[in-house]
Design a protein around this nucleic acid. Sequence first.
RNA 1: GCGUCGGUGGCGGAGUGGUCAAUCGCACUUGACUGUAAAUCAAGCGACUUAUGUCUACGCAGGUUCAAAUCCUGCCCGGCGCA
Length: 412
Amino acid sequence: MSEKFNFKIEKRLADEKAGALGRAGTINTPHGQIQTPSFVVVGTKATVKAMTPEMLESLGAQVVLANTYHLYLQPGSDLVAQAGGFSKFMNWAGPTMTDSGGFQVFSLGAAFGEHVSKVAKKGDEDKKKVEDGGTGNEGKLAKIDEEGVTFKSHLDGSSHRFTPESSMKVQWDLGADMIFAFDECTSPQATHEYQKEAMNRTHRWAQRCLDAHEKLDPENIQALFGVVQGGRHEDLRKESAEILGQMKTKSGNGFDGFGIGGSFDKDDMGTAVAWVNKVLPEEKPRHLLGIGDPLDILEAVENGCDLFDCVAPTRIARNGSLYTKNGNINITNSKFRTDFSPIEEDCKCYTCQNYTKAYLAHLFHAKEILANTLASVHNVYFIVNFVADIRTAILENRFQEFKKQFLIAFNK
RNA sequence: GCGUCGGUGGCGGAGUGGUCAAUCGCACUUGACUGUAAAUCAAGCGACUUAUGUCUACGCAGGUUCAAAUCCUGCCCGGCGCA
């Protein structure tokens, strides 16, 4: 009944600008098509915070990504399996993905209690280099060894262990169309030496994921994406893409697509992504994990990425930051209290069609729960349609013009 | 009228002789947020300022003291009790 996973490239950027890696395509999954490039909405615990699936669908979202670690802890992956998978559980009929739990190795390990982002900005250089990835320190909730990672639940402190094999099993139970190999997301503050060590471990884990997945899912119902690591280093990134691009099981099955994970330099994301995408097999989709800033997406699409997921649109929405074509605004700023115009005059989202900035400002100041929903609707609409517009521009041979116009308006 | 308790920064409310421009909470202002530990977090919040700097401040007016939001006197205002 369902179509097997596949990816078709419809249009390449290369005919517009020599050397450009970008493309527009279509992914087929058992739960429908994804027109790429596409923004994947994050619904960590089988819910996109403050939004119903109907809202997501009506604003054009195509894919939802949930998280292995979170659903494993709560309500438990066996329960989600009983429900028929997280997509059925949350009433989202479209394509789905799950992250492997690899990001929690970072967020509950190296990044726990620190002010570290996986995207390093200027001025972060003076932050101390971390020799062991930062995971061995006291108080961290994740500890890594060769076999896997031991976590302490952030909910109740109980101990749990993930291995490449168990991540595959949990993701099988969660039942997404596309899943990721269990990897280690490293801190941008980690040394080159540590990045290399972590990358090599991630490669060994990738092979184990590939093998375990083949046993669990011999008909390959779920597409498995390998995750490229290597941090901010060109040599490591290229090596990782090379190894994962060619990795196979004994019976010859390789990855169905690739995630690009780990840490980046904010200023040079396009370059880092290009190192990888020049090496990865062209005919497989590439998902840039956890990246969602409009400017980063623009760079990454141009350099060959097809899918993006990011918590930013929903998280910053809940904190009062709203995307506009002229840059972000913070709706809680005092000047918006009496601004009776929509967030954006020409925006077609439900929020902009029906409410004013003054009303949203009021909801935020009053800490009304509807603020989260209306702000999330706008931001998700903005980013999903922004990426869809990039796709259209590629198909219509006007990507560079689109990019130029967007940057002029968006850059503050 | 008598007695009694109290009047502190936008609000609530600590402080009861020096370390107080004054704990804390709220409100307010601004910022951050990139595979969600997140409806979270950070900074600021008397004035002027580059300042560990100066000035003005704890109902009002005096006084005691080297030093007062803190002690004394008077006044004004409020709560409660008794007439």
